[in-house]
Simulated scan of single mutants.
Amino acid sequence: MENPPQRRDSQTSHLRASDSDRERIATVLGEALSTGQLSHEEYSERLDGLYQAKTMGELEVLTHDLQVDRPRPAASPVSYAPSANSEPENIVAVFGGAERKGRWRVRRRTKAFAVFGGLRFDLSEAQFEAKEVEITVNAVFGGAEIIVPEGVEVRCSGVGVFGGFDVQSPPDVDPSAPVVVVKGLALFGGVSGRVRRRRER
């Protein structure tokens, strides 16, 4: 187990931390995990400290030894809300519809099923639990629409049988943004995707 980081003094260390401050630190920790600077155990320990921190000083010590860029509030179109353990979210639309929008939490895995119904996932203001999330859509005589913010990479491996998957990645991908993997089956149905530009918000 790593030794706890030492507290540092700064002009802002006494200020109370906000949710957006915690989100920025969570992004830094996630990037450090993906680049090998933190082990999974260290990442989990610092993540625990992140959600217990009350001041900016307590947040600063969690990242002072990491070689990553500190993201600014307006620098990224997405935010992270990591979770050490996450169960898949199951969404069902039968002869009806289901929608996720606003600042909802995108789980590491989402399983959606539509039968004579419609699904809509708007990720433009969502919080992502991980750098890579997976959305599995099975649509039978139904459909789904997936909306992603600018910079987010989309990888589609869905199969269409008398239906189709039309989910493409934006042309300009931000390496620091999450990756959305879309899987599933469209049987007499369709799954489509589009990018929501910042000016549309």
Rank of each mutant, 00 (worst) to 15 (best):
D122Y: 13
G160D: 02
G142L: 02
P73S: 11
S20I: 15
D65I: 03
A139Q: 00
V28Y: 12
S20T: 14
V106Q: 12
L59M: 02
D9R: 11
R22E: 01
S169T: 13
D166F: 07
I91G: 02
V159K: 11
D21C: 11
V154H: 13
E134R: 14
S20M: 15
V106Y: 13
F165A: 07
K101G: 03
G118T: 02
Q6K: 15
G160T: 03
S157L: 09
R7A: 07
V167C: 15
Y51F: 10
G193L: 08
V180P: 06
F121R: 11
E134M: 10
A98K: 09
A81I: 00
A130V: 02
S192N: 13
V173I: 14
E41V: 14
K183R: 15
P4V: 08
A81P: 00
P82R: 00
L62P: 00
S79N: 09
S176D: 13
R196L: 03
E42G: 14
Y51P: 00
E60F: 10
R194W: 08
L187F: 15
R72T: 13
Q52F: 05
W104F: 14
P5V: 07
P82M: 00
L29Y: 13
T110M: 12
V167A: 12
A93G: 02
D9K: 09
E41M: 06
Q37D: 04
S76Y: 10
L59N: 00
E31D: 11
T55H: 02
R8A: 03
N85Q: 12
Y43M: 02
S20D: 15
R8W: 05
A53T: 03
A93Q: 04
H14F: 11
R199K: 13
E89P: 00
A139Y: 00
F162E: 01
G190T: 04
E42H: 03
T35H: 09
M56R: 14
P178T: 04
A126P: 08
S124N: 10
F165N: 04
G160F: 11
S20V: 15
A98L: 05
G97Q: 08
Q6S: 12
Q11D: 05
S13Q: 06
E200N: 05
V94D: 01
I91L: 08
V195D: 04
V115E: 05
P88N: 03
H14K: 15
V161F: 15
T63S: 04
M1Q: 06
G57S: 03
T12P: 00
S10T: 15
A112I: 08
E58T: 04
F188S: 01
S34V: 08
V137E: 03
V179H: 09
R120V: 02
T136I: 10
A186P: 08
W104T: 04
E99M: 11
N138G: 01
R105C: 05
G102L: 10
R16E: 09
V68P: 00
A139L: 01
F165W: 11
G158Y: 13
G30P: 01
R103L: 09
V78W: 15
Q127F: 13
G143K: 06
A139R: 00
T110A: 06
V180N: 08
M56T: 02
